[in-house]
Design a binder for these strands. Structure first.
Lengths: 223, 223, 223, 223
DNA sequence: TATGAATGAGCGTTCATTCAT
DNA sequence: AATGAATGAACGCTCATTCAT
C-alpha cells in the first residue's frame, strides 16, 4: 500500500469492526515496550527458549503486532542489542574526556558507571545474552564488536595513556591488552548470572580490589 | 528369501555396510564418541538449538542409541561437563601440590595447562556453553560451581599462599577475590568464541601479560 | 504482490482453497467437528492407537489447531465423554420425572432413548472406549462414575420406587443392584462392538426381552 | 544356516562365549512364564501401553527371547487369549451335564465357578482386555466368539432347557437371548475394573440377586 | 537357544510465522 | 495498523523389532 495520499482521517468513528487495540501509543513508544518485553523474556529464557507469545503479552500487544515492528525473532534480538548497549560507551567516553582528577579517581567513577549501567539488570542480562548467543549471530557479534567492544577498549587505552602522561602509572601492558582491565567486569556478570543466587559476588568490592591490584601492577604512584 | 544355498561366510568383513549395526565399539568408546559429537553440536548451536538427530549422526549411531547412554538431552549436557572440565581441575591440583619452582614458573605452567586443555581444546566451547546455558540449568550450574569453580578458586588461593610463604609476593587481594586471577582466561574464551574469526586474541600472550601485570600488582620480587 | 489494483472483493468464496486457513467456523462448530473426528479415530484405534494427526485431518484442521481447543490428547478424550454421555442422563431424568404412564411404558420409552442416543449412535463407541480405557484414566473413570453412572443408577431406583408406589411391581432387588437393570444395555454395546459384523445383536428386541424378563421377575401386574 | 546335521553336542564345555541364560526351563515352561508375564503387563497397561521389555523382565528372559516364542506383540496377545479362556467353558460344560440338583442349585454352582475362575484376577483382566482390544483384533474376536462365547451361550440354553424339562421354569426368553443370563457377570468385571477401587461391587451378592430376579422372571417354582 | 545393544519409524507437543478480519 | 486463530515444520523421546554374538 505504497500510496495513501489523502483524507487519512476520514470518519474515525465509522461503524466498522471496532476492536483495534489501544492506539494510545505512538510507534516509537510501542517499539520500546516490545523491546523491553523482549529483553525480559530473552534474559529469562535465552533466545531459543523465549516465546514470542510471552513477549507480546508482556508488551501488551498481539502476537502479530510484533511482526509489524520486527521482521522476525532474530531481528527482535538484534534490535535489543543495538538499542541498549551503545549509549553506555558514549557516556563513558564523555566522562573520560572531561575528567580532571587522578587515574584512580577516574577508575572509581567508571566502576560506578559500569556497576550502575551495566552490571545491574537489565543490561547485565544483555551482556550475558550476547555471550550466550553471540556465536550464533555472527553479524550481531561483529556489530557489537565494532560499536561497543572496540570503542570500550579504545577508552581504556585512553585512560592508560592519560595516566602515563600524568606520571601516575608506567606500564603499557593494558595498551596491548586492554581486555585485562575490563575482564573482571565481564566475569562479574557471568558469575552473578550463574551463581548469584547461592554465592553472590559483591561487584563493587570486587572491582575495587581489581582497581587496587592493577594500579599497583601498573606502577601506580600518587603524583 | 527362502533359499540361501552356499557360501554364507564369504568375506564377512566386506564394506557393504547396508544400514546395519555400528561396528561393535565397546561401551566406553561409544560413550566418548557420543560425547564428542554432542560437544560439537552443542557448541555450534547451543543446548536448545542442537538436534539430537545431528548428534547421533555425527557420532555414527542411531537416534535411539543416545538414550542407551544418556537418559535425556540434559543428561548428555551434564555428561559433557562432568567428563571434560572436572579432570582439568584435578590435574592442576596435583601440579600445584608438587611443583618446586617459583610462583612465576608455576603460573607459566598453569597457563600452559589451561591453554592446552581448555582454551584451545573443544573444552573451550564447553566453558562458553556453561556460561550461556548455566542460568537455565541451575543444578548443572551448582554442580559446576562445586566441582570446578570452588576447587579452581581454592587452587588459586593455595598458589597465592605458597607465594607469600616463599616471600615472592605480599598481597592478599586474590585470597579475597581469586576470580581476579582467572578472569582473563574466562574472557579469552568468550572473546575468541565471539570475535575469534575476525579479531582473534592470542591466548598465551594475553595470559602472559596478565601474569606480568598481576605479579607486579602482587608485589612480586625474585627471591 | 506489490500491486493489487481493483476488484478486491470479487467472489470471496471461490473454491481455490490453496493450503489456506479452514473456512471460518465459529468456535463451537469447530470444537464439535474436532470432537466428532476424535470419536471416530478413538473408536477405530483406541486411545493410545489413535493419531492426533488423523484426528486433525478428519476434522479438517491442522494438527496445531487441536491444541487451541484441547490442552492435550487426554483432554480431548475427556471432552468426548463430557459432551456425549452426560446429556443423555440429564434427558432421561427429565423424562422419568414427567412420565404419566405405566412402568412398562416408561421402560419402553427409556429403551428407545438408549437405543437412539447411545446404542446406535457414535456414543456406542464411546461407552466401549470408557470400558476399554477407563482403568488407565482413573480421573476420567471417576468423572464418568459420578456424572453418568451414579445418576443413571439413581434414575433406575427412581423408576423402581415409582413402580412399587403405583402397585405395579413388588421387588426391591434393583434398589440394591440397579446395575442389573442396565446390564444388558452394556453387554449389547460390548457385543456389537466385538461381534456385530458377523453376529449382530438386535438391540431393541434384546432389551425388550430383558424388559419382559425382569418385569415378571419384579412381580409385574397391570393395574 | 539351514543345514547342521552332525555332532551338535560336540564339546559342550568349549571355551566359547558362555553366557547363555539358565536352560533350567523347558520350552513349555518358559512359554507359560512369558504368557503369565504378558497377562500381567497387558492387564495393567492395555495392549498398546504394555512394553515388551517389561514383559521380558517379568518373565525373567531377555527381550529377544520373546521373539523365539511369539512372532510379534499381537501373537503374544493372541496366545494369551487362546490359552486362558477356553478351559473354563469346558469345565462348566462338564458340570452342567452331570449335575443332579435343581436349576437354582445349578446356577449357584455356576456362579461360584464364574466367581472363582473368571471374575477374579487374572482371568478378569483378560475378559476386560478382550472387551477393550477386541475390536482391533477381529480375528481374535472371532476366535473368542467361536471358542468361548458360542459355547457359553449354548451352555446357558442347555441349563434353561433342563429347567423347563424339570418343570422348574417356563420362559424361553433366555433361549432366544442367553446373553441376558450372563450379562451381569460381564458388567461385574467391567464395573470392578473401572470403579472397584472406590465403589466395589460384591460380585457374589450381585450375581445371587440376579439369580433371584431372573428365576422369578422365568417363572420359578420349586418342584 | 538366548541375549540385549542397536535401530529408526512414529507420535505428541511446541511455537515462529501467516493472514483474514 | 492491529489482531489472534490457524498453520505445519520441527524435535525430543519411545519402543517394537532385529541380529551379531
Amino acid at each position: 500500500m505504497p500510496q495513501m495520499p489523502k483524507d487519512s482521517q476520514e470518519s474515525p468513528s465509522s461503524p466498522q469492526a471496532r476492536r483495534r487495540r489501544a492506539p494510545a501509543m505512538d510507534r516509537g513508544e510501542r517499539r520500546r515496550s516490545i523491546l523491553d518485553a523482549a529483553l525480559a523474556e530473552f534474559a529469562a529464557h535465552g533466545f531459543a527458549g523465549a516465546r514470542l507469545e510471552d513477549v507480546a503479552r508482556r508488551a501488551g500487544v498481539a502476537k502479530g503486532t510484533l511482526y509489524l515492528y520486527f521482521s522476525d525473532k532474530e531481528a527482535l534480538f538484534r534490535g535489543l542489542v543495538e538499542e541498549n548497549l551503545s549509549p553506555v560507551i558514549v557516556d563513558a567516553g564523555g566522562m573520560v574526556a572531561l575528567f580532571p582528577g587522578t587515574t584512580r579517581e577516574l577508575l572509581d567513577l567508571l566502576i560506578e558507571l559500569l556497576a550502575q549501567r551495566v552490571l545491574e539488570a537489565p543490561a547485565q542480562a544483555l551482556v550475558r545474552l550476547m555471550i550466550a548467543e553471540g556465536p550464533r549471530f555472527p553479524e550481531l557479534a561483529a556489530y557489537y564488536h565494532r560499536e561497543v567492544v572496540v570503542r570500550g577498549l579504545a577508552l581504556i587505552r585512553a585512560i592508560v595513556a592519560r595516566g602515563i602522561a600524568r606520571g601516575e602509572i608506567d606500564s603499557d601492558i593494558p595498551a596491548q591488552f586492554p581486555q585485562l582491565v575490563i575482564a573482571p567486569a565481564i566475569v562479574a556478570v557471568v558469575w552473578n548470572s550463574m551463581f548469584g543466587t547461592f554465592d553472590p559476588l559483591d561487584v563493587r568490592r570486587f572491582l575495587a580490589a581489581h582497581r587496587d591490584l592493577i594500579l599497583r601492577g601498573l606502577g601506580w604512584r600518587e603524583t
